[in-house]
Design a binder for these strands. Structure first.
Lengths: 245, 245
DNA sequence: GATGATAAAAATGTATGGATAAGAAAAAAA
DNA sequence: TTTTTTTCTTATCCATACATTTTTATCATC
């Protein structure tokens, strides 16, 4: 039946989706090609353009993106370590699947580290970053009212990025970024319904206020509250999405 | 003066140190060469055989390890993400330097996550892992009495690995491993004096007991106590080592 | 129709070559 | 002697080629 078509179908869709995502970097010489490929593939995975489990073939990707296999290989290796791709030696790479267990794992770690971020940020935030934080919060609130889902998601991510950066701990920043990718995928994959933006706004405000007031414990508590609710909500969505199938 | 000699000198020492570290993997076919190279270089960096700041040239490493440049490149990319190597595009790779700031960063994050590990482990540890934990603890105590520094360090690392694994959170495991590398480098670089093994033993016992008793809060507290002391001690060593120069 | 063996196709793993750019050495100028 | 410029070596980056392994397709058999 359609079983026969399936292969060609995937290929077609794949082909149609990629080229526009790959920026022609003729002007910017200094960026290595592998980095461009990496960012391109990463974005495609994060936004669900490449489905979990889909195979990432070097030659095919090379043809599509117009490069040789070498930069593709290196990009895929990097994606593997970011957890977005799983490689089985000798066989090849696939887009990593995201399971409920993964979410659980990430959320447990993130809950703890978000608290740490908030605590440290409230102790160390610079005057400059304070302005940035206020702005990020305003942008978020604005986008919940007038923006589309993508804009909301991005402003949300940015809000948390500012806090993470304000914590002034590179390692923490790095770890948080790695987990943010996974969470982003979940959101993109499962969350279609309207979030309860009013709650989110209140929670963000609470975190914001505590950090600006330089109140570490309050900040940590607000962060914990936020992430726990988030976790619960995403889990709910996940189960709803499952039961629909 | 000896400025002129310096380059050649490094080269020589480098050449002499590597080959014995690279296992001849003629028997085991299934492991990719890049993985072997990766592990080899990783070990050399962790144990200080390759100095911080030292340049890692593809061709040279290829000659020394007897492989082409391709596996070397891929191993280096992986090392970069692990934080053991810094790459400047177009220029090449160097062994990453470790600063006091790095230690501070890692310790802050690790303090939090160690508590999480202990807490989760005490809730989730299996009967099998309980035995493993007890054994790891005994091995550690034994090695502090009869082993050399390397053995002590390794049994210490293993003790914490068991706990981390018992926590049953892959993401946590992964993050902890990444940080363990950095800490290991510090220990190897700066810690020559005898540690206060009696204290360490007592602290390990406390953690062990709390986990076996399935007491999350106690476990977290014991872990925090342990890591904070460790941090303090390493910092002290670091400053002592600095003032000696 | 399902299952298993065999052969063809394709993909990965590794090696190597050419183009470009960074870095070192040498030469020229101050 | 120091600084600047130029030349030349060397390394990375990407592309490509070959060898081996894995996957897929085909066909025979139960």
């Amino acid at each position: 039946m359609s079983e026969q078509k399936k292969k060609k179908y995937n290929e077609k869709e794949f082909l149609s989706v990629i080229p526009e995502a790959m920026p022609a970097q003729d002007d910017q010489q200094s960026i290595p090609l592998r980095e461009t490929v990496f960012l391109t593939l990463r974005k495609l995975i994060l936004t669900g353009k490449l489905d979990p489990g889909e195979r990432l073939t070097e030659v095919r990707l090379g043809k599509i993106l117009g490069t040789s296999r070498t930069p593709i290989r290196e990009a895929i290796r990097k994606l593997e370590i970011e957890g977005l791709v799983t490689i089985t030696p000798g066989s090849g790479a696939r887009v990593a699947k995201i399971t409920e267990g993964d979410l659980q794992d990430v959320m447990e770690v993130r809950s703890t580290l978000d608290q740490l971020c908030a605590r440290l940020a409230s102790q160390r935030i610079s005057e400059e970053d304070k302005k940035e934080l206020i702005k990020a919060n305003e942008t978020f609130e604005y986008s919940t009212k007038f923006g589309n889902e993508q804009e909301i998601a991005e402003s949300d991510v940015h809000f948390h990025e500012v806090i993470t950066r304000a914590a002034g701990n590179r390692r923490l920043d790095q770890v948080m970024n790695g987990m943010a990718d996974t969470i982003y995928r979940f959101r993109y994959e499962y969350i279609r319904d309207d979030l309860h933006y009013e709650e989110l706004i209140m929670e963000h405000r609470a975190i914001c206020r505590a950090i600006l007031d330089r109140d570490p414990e309050q900040a940590a508590a607000a962060a914990k509250d936020h992430i726990d609710r988030q976790h619960e909500f995403i889990l709910g969505q996940l189960r709803k999405s499952k039961s629909e199938k």
